[in-house]
């Protein structure tokens, strides 16, 4: 019992760990909700590309406006919008398909971002920026995270029906006269807001882990959308708590520690899920092979 306490609870006696935990739990809520939409709309990789493209915007606003959360948010929003619009334009007007346009554009943006961040010199540690730095979570970061998380939760409560239709069957929504034009703009804004909010805890590159991994894990267990949302949030919370404890004991950056903990949940889900997991698929295949052999005999 004592060992368990030392392992899991003792780390959170410290103020900075409490702030980190609160931030991670808040992000788990919004991440689980937004991540479920990403996973179901097959936008997980696109989201990954998007996070990389935020880097130059973040670095530029840091250089020009300082490191206040509002400055970072503005920089990231502008970078995110510009990259999405530019790559959409490329894929629509040139021969390039969407994946190549987005992929190419976001790689360049990422490189530009790293170049800019390294120009920030001693004022900021590149590793902190990329992978998170739990010690750096200040009160203003927490405020931003709470706002991002609350806004996301509110959006899902208010627009739940619209979101389900827009994700599941936008053509029906349109035929029935429901307007969906706000959906992608709103989704993008919420995603960027939460990615920026996750900057201190998770880092630019890994913040999306709190979106994609819990949702992908929940997708393997749930046959109802509402349950998938709830289970995503629970998985995210469990994973980030465990990850923070690991980070405390091992000195690993909080971002990778959390993503690795979420990875354990994901892998376990992929193997063990009773209906959609690997073990189930293998058992099915073996049963099928046996049936075929019997028929041949």
């Amino acid at each position: 019992m004592n060992a368990l306490y030392d392992l899991l609870l003792a780390p959170f006696a410290y103020d900075f760990m409490q702030r980190g935990l609160l931030s991670a739990v808040l992000l788990s809520i919004s991440g689980g909700l937004l991540g479920s939409v990403l996973v179901l709309r097959r936008l997980a990789l696109m989201g990954d590309a998007l996070t990389h493209s935020l880097l130059p915007g973040l670095a530029l606003s840091w250089l020009l406006l300082g490191r206040g959360p509002l400055a970072l948010l503005t920089g990231a929003l502008v970078a995110g919008l510009l990259s999405v619009m530019a790559s959409a334009l490329l894929s629509r007007l040139t021969r390039l398909k969407e994946d190549a346009a987005f992929g190419a554009f976001f790689l360049v943006a990422y490189a530009a971002g790293i170049a800019l961040v390294s120009q920030l010199g001693t004022r900021v540690d590149l590793l902190h920026f990329l992978f998170g730095h739990i010690l750096g979570v200040g009160p203003s970061d927490l405020m931003l995270t709470a706002a991002a998380s609350g806004l996301t939760l509110a959006a899902f409560v208010v627009a739940y029906r619209g979101i389900v239709l827009e994700v599941f069957d936008p053509i029906f929504a349109r035929a029935a006269g429901m307007r969906g034009g706000w959906f992608y703009a709103g989704f993008l804004a919420l995603a960027v807001l939460n990615l920026v909010a996750g900057l201190q805890t998770m880092g630019v590159v890994l913040a999306l882990g709190l979106f994609v991994l819990p949702a992908a894990s929940a997708y393997l267990w749930c046959d109802r959308f509402a349950w998938m949302l709830v289970v995503s949030v629970v998985f995210g919370t469990l994973g980030s708590t465990a990850g923070l404890a690991v980070s405390f004991h091992t000195g690993l950056s909080s971002g990778p520690a959390i993503v690795l903990a979420l990875g354990v949940i994901f892998l376990a889900s992929a193997v063990l899920s009773p209906r959609y997991g690997l073990l189930h698929a293998l058992a099915l295949a073996r049963r099928e092979r046996r049936t075929v052999r019997h028929t041949v005999d």
Partner: peptide, 18 residues
């Protein structure tokens, strides 16, 4: 992740709104 009944119930949403 949706059931047959949930899809059919979506038919009520346009007139119910959000």
């Amino acid at each position: 992740p949706i059931s047959v009944r949930e899809v059919v119930a979506q038919g009520r949403w346009p007139s119910l709104g959000l």
